[in-house]
Computed example of a mutant assay.
Amino acid sequence: MIQRVQTIYLLLAAVLSGVLCLYVPFAIGSDGNPLFAIQKPMVIGMFIGSAILSLISIFLFKKRQLQFVLGRINILLNFILLGVFVYWSLTVSGETMVSEKGIGMLIPIISIVLLVIANKAIKKDEDLVKSVDRLR
């Protein structure tokens, strides 16, 4: 049953984390050039990890509990990524490496929202299956 509503949310989160992060700068450097996630191995690794977890979750539609747990792990990974971005933006003193925040710092926030909505839909499906099992 890939045609469920949480599949759309997980796919949007995967595209956001896997593709959009490559084209949207997360900061502007002290020299005025935009900084992309591909320039930082830790950041691109976390973005790609989030995208892979979302894609794996899509295809685990028969194992809803595992899908739910992977969604929570993905949310945690995005919170860690958001924490890295907040740390970088708060340690801007003078003209260090990152001088301005970019729109790419919002990608983890949007991804977290999509993953939370997907987890709510997964939980709703699990509750529906449990209620049908009670009737048998």
Rank of each mutant, 00 (worst) to 15 (best):
R4F: 00
V5M: 06
Q6E: 11
Y9C: 13
Y9L: 15
L10M: 07
L11Y: 02
L12A: 14
A13E: 07
V15M: 05
L16V: 05
S17H: 07
S17P: 01
V19T: 11
V19R: 02
V19C: 08
L20I: 15
L20F: 14
L22P: 00
L22E: 05
V24R: 04
A27F: 04
I28V: 15
I28E: 08
I28D: 03
I28S: 02
G29F: 01
S30R: 13
S30K: 13
D31N: 13
G32V: 04
G32Y: 04
P34D: 07
P34T: 11
P34Y: 09
L35M: 10
F36Y: 15
F36L: 15
F36I: 11
F36N: 10
I38H: 04
I38A: 09
I38Q: 10
I38L: 04
Q39G: 10
Q39P: 00
Q39R: 08
K40H: 13
K40T: 15
P41H: 09
P41G: 08
P41C: 09
P41D: 11
M42S: 12
M42Y: 09
V43W: 05
V43T: 14
I44F: 08
G45N: 12
M46Q: 11
F47L: 11
F47R: 01
F47H: 15
I48D: 02
G49L: 07
G49M: 02
G49R: 02
G49E: 02
S50H: 01
S50C: 06
S50T: 13
S50W: 00
S50K: 00
I52D: 05
I52F: 08
S54N: 14
S54G: 06
L55H: 01
L55C: 04
I56N: 03
S57T: 14
S57P: 06
I58D: 00
I58T: 06
F59V: 14
F59H: 01
F59W: 07
L60V: 05
K62R: 15
R64H: 11
R64P: 11
R64S: 13
Q65H: 09
L66S: 11
L66R: 10
Q67T: 05
Q67A: 06
G71V: 08
R72F: 15
I73W: 03
I73L: 15
I75N: 03
L76W: 03
L76M: 12
L77F: 05
F79A: 12
F79H: 02
I80W: 09
L81Q: 09
L81W: 06
L81F: 06
L82H: 03
L82V: 02
L82A: 09
G83W: 07
V84W: 13
V84A: 07
Y87F: 10
W88N: 10
S89P: 01
L90W: 07
T91V: 08
T91D: 10
V92G: 04
V92K: 10
S93N: 15
S93L: 15
G94K: 11
E95T: 03
M97V: 12
M97T: 14
M97P: 04
V98S: 03
S99C: 00
S99Q: 13
S99E: 14
E100F: 15
K101M: 12
G102V: 09
G102E: 09
I103T: 14
I103A: 13
